[in-house]
Design a protein around this nucleic acid. Structure first.
Length: 725
DNA sequence: CGGCGTATCAGT
DNA sequence: CTGATACGCCGG
């Protein structure tokens, strides 16, 4: 008999092994240890077959079968196989990403603990027949509540007592199969007031009506409209039926308060999965969920791989959040995997957001997802006032216009905090005329050119067209052409000089590395120790800053004219999230945007009509430009110390795909052209049919992997790329 | 990916 | 000739 095994090596396809005759019947999904070259690897059986397409004398035999019961169900295997094909990523690597590290290393999958339980005699025992042996009686009572782990029982009672009760055959050790503790549905006790306004009730009813079988919902609820309450009330009946709920949250949104809210409502423990867990803790959560011992599992991106014995629903909160996309190795999108998993598990899925991604919104508008809206804001939070400051021709100090400096000073003098947003650095920007705000555009695509200083060229990242950097503005003839956002990079250094009597603090993913550290910084902010807060997106995600009365987005143009067509969407999400949070309660909040183009249609639409309206307009633009979600993309990235190698490799990839109906844009320099001394290039594949890209790639990947340059450069394929840095 | 064989080179 | 490092190839 032959087994096909997925191994954690970057090679496509499974590997066939012989199974020794005397072995127990293996199941797909069980792990094996196998010889691979000169080493031993742990892999997962993906198929059992009678013959191999390899010559039999090449086959080696497995070293050991590690599991009696599969660690991955047939459904999970199907799902991961699908994912491997969809992302064109080696199946062994996909499976290995989906398993906890401990299982990857071949450690036992089932609990090794042994338990004590009552024998039948013990169960039948009259409660006062052991009156003269109170310790023994205590053990019996202890076990009447349920089995107890050997280790724990030995902590509570002396070994002699345990031995005595065992001799009487009242208790017995069970080291055979682990008996899952699945009593939690009986322990559910719903508490807290179940208030729901009309909108919330409508949403809850709509979801409850479709709670059997696969069905997708977009729950679009403005900040503070009570999405969580909808989740809580929707999952209640499912939990009571003993069905498990898997909830995904963004990396930064997983706070103890979130978890506490679920625990308080239902009175049962919530399992939490995040990057701070040890391998052991992660394995425990994984096992317990797989055995059906946990009702609610909340986790970040990788929690989507948690097995569920009795799945009831998947919720992806803040579905637009970028942290759901893995940015190295296997570049999966947890939200997209969730959709497919829910379909396979045949359970409902809720995608929740105040600012849904355009992909999701499009699915809702076309009826693929049921669209539920919460527009009413709970509580008496004052709406934030938006203001746009035109900075055309204005002198800027470190990116701040004079008028803005005065505004900031005013707020600081009132004892409030001011938050300044700058974009991430190092991106290739557009070229803007500081006098009239005109941006050089590609005539074919009507999209802004991107400045590549190293080449002294403007390049269109939509069609690949390029031209030499002009010396004068094409609209007004002024020579004051500047890269968008110029000066903002110096803000951090300059701000202290502009406002010497106040303290400035910078918060970005570097200074806030590690969850603990970020929460520490946030606490510090809310104590008011710093008055000026400088940060990037990270500041906007799900945190409240009651002392902040003024929020400034310095560099709106870099988002409006970015080569990354998602930048405007992300800016709109940022503005909306910030507006929903700054200066809640007593203080009237103000949001100021600096731009050369106050009349930009997307910006105007966002400010006048809100995110919902903006998103629909942005979708029209995407449709006009044939961009996602109206087309499908895949991105080859390559990097090498020698930039020519990176370029040549992508040229060869391009040649492989030339005979197809996929449009190929590039090779172009990445928006961050150079990183850690390596030149970075990209080749964008785009098609109006998803299957087109899929099929051509599955035919071509083996050939691409064999290209002579393929192991001279570092390269990867990114399906549905979200980030063009 | 990671191990192993072969090529290459400075140093004896 | 020897040991150290670099690179390419292979794995079922």
């Amino acid at each position: 008999m032959i087994v096909e095994v997925a191994l954690p090596v970057p090679m496509r396809g499974g590997f066939d092994y012989l199974l020794p005759e005397d072995h127990a019947q293996p199941t797909p999904g069980a792990r094996v240890r196998v010889p691979f070259g000169s080493r031993q690897l742990v892999g997962v059986i993906t198929a059992i077959k009678q013959n191999s397409d390899q010559p039999t004398d090449k086959l080696r035999r497995i070293t050991a079968l590690l599991d009696h019961k599969p660690v991955l169900s047939a459904l999970m295997l199907d799902w991961l196989n699908w994912a491997s094909r969809y992302y064109q990523h080696p199946v062994g690597d996909v499976i290995s990403t989906a398993l906890p590290a401990r299982l990857r290393k071949g450690e036992p999958a089932t609990s090794q603990q042994s338990f004590w339980r009552l024998t039948e005699t013990g169960q039948a025992l009259n409660s006062d027949s052991l009156k003269r042996a109170p310790q023994q009686q205590a053990i019996i009572e202890r076990l009447r509540a349920g089995r107890c782990e050997d280790k724990i029982l030995k902590q509570e009672f002396s070994a002699a007592i345990i031995r005595a009760v065992k001799e009487k055959q009242l208790i017995e050790a069970t080291d055979d199969a682990y008996i899952p503790d699945t009593d939690w549905p009986a322990r559910i006790k719903i508490s807290g007031q179940l208030n729901a306004n009309l909108e919330q009730s409508l949403a809850i009813t709509a979801i409850n009506n479709q709670a059997q079988g696969f069905h997708s919902f977009l729950l679009e609820g403005v900040t503070g409209s009570g999405k969580t309450e909808v989740y809580l009330q929707c999952i209640a009946p499912l939990l009571q039926q003993g069905k498990q709920i898997l909830i995904l949250v963004p990396e930064i949104g997983l706070t103890p308060q979130t978890v506490a809210r679920f625990e308080q409502r239902f009175g049962i423990d919530v399992a939490v999965l995040h990057s701070g867990l040890t391998d052991k803790e992660r394995l425990t959560v994984w096992q317990q969920a797989g055995l059906g011992e946990t009702g609610i599992i909340i986790g970040t991106r990788s929690a989507i791989f948690t097995p569920l014995a009795n799945p009831g629903m998947i919720i992806v909160d803040e579905e637009h959040d970028g942290s759901y996309k893995q940015q190295d190795g296997w570049r999966y999108h947890a939200r997209d995997l969730a959709v497919v998993r829910a379909r396979l598990e045949n359970i409902p899925l809720i995608l929740g957001s105040a600012t849904p991604s355009l992909e999701t919104l499009n699915n809702a508008l076309t009826g693929k997802y049921q669209h539920l809206s919460l527009k009413q804001r709970a509580g008496g939070a004052k709406a934030v006032q938006h203001q746009v400051l035109d900075i055309k021709g204005q002198a800027l100090d470190y990116g701040l216009a004079k008028g803005m400096q005065q505004r900031i000073r005013l707020h600081l003098q009132q004892g409030h905090q001011v938050m300044l947003f700058i974009n991430r650095r190092g991106f290739a920007p557009a070229l803007i005329c500081h006098q009239c705000g005109h941006v050089e555009e590609c005539h074919r695509c009507e999209r802004s050119f991107t400045l590549h200083r190293q080449l002294n060229k403007l390049q269109c990242h939509h069609c690949g067209d390029a031209k030499i950097v002009p010396s004068r503005c094409a609209a007004c003839g002024h020579p004051d052409l500047q890269p968008v956002g110029m000066g903002t990079e110096q803000l951090e250094h300059g701000i202290q000089r502009l406002f010497p009597q106040y303290t400035a603090m910078r918060i970005d993913s570097d200074s806030a590395r590690g969850k603990q550290k970020l929460h520490g910084l946030l606490d510090e902010i809310n104590q008011g120790n710093s008055q000026l807060l400088i940060g990037t997106q990270i500041l906007a995600k799900g945190h409240h800053f009651p002392r902040v009365s003024l929020v400034v987005i310095l560099d709106v143009d870099s988002a409006l004219f970015s080569a990354d067509y998602r930048a405007a969407e992300h800016l709109a999400q940022l503005i909306t999230q910030v507006a929903g949070r700054a200066g809640r309660a007593q203080i009237q909040g103000e949001l100021w945007l600096q731009t050369h183009n106050p009349g930009h249609p997307l910006l105007q639409d966002l400010l006048n009509n809100g995110y919902q309206h903006f998103a629909r307009l942005a979708l029209k633009e995407r449709q006009f430009a044939a961009l996602p979600p109206y087309s499908y993309q895949a991105l080859f990235r390559s990097e090498a110390v020698n930039g020519n190698l990176a370029y040549d490799f992508l040229e060869q990839v391009k040649a492989c795909l030339r005979q197809t109906d996929i449009s190929l844009i590039g090779p172009l320099p990445a928006l961050m052209e150079k990183r850690q001394g390596r030149y970075r290039m990209q080749l964008l594949l785009q098609s109006d049919k998803r299957t087109g890209i899929q099929q051509w790639l599955s035919n071509m990947m083996t050939r691409i992997e064999k290209l002579p340059l393929a192991n001279k450069v570092r390269w990867s394929l990114d399906m549905d790329p979200m980030d063009f840095t």
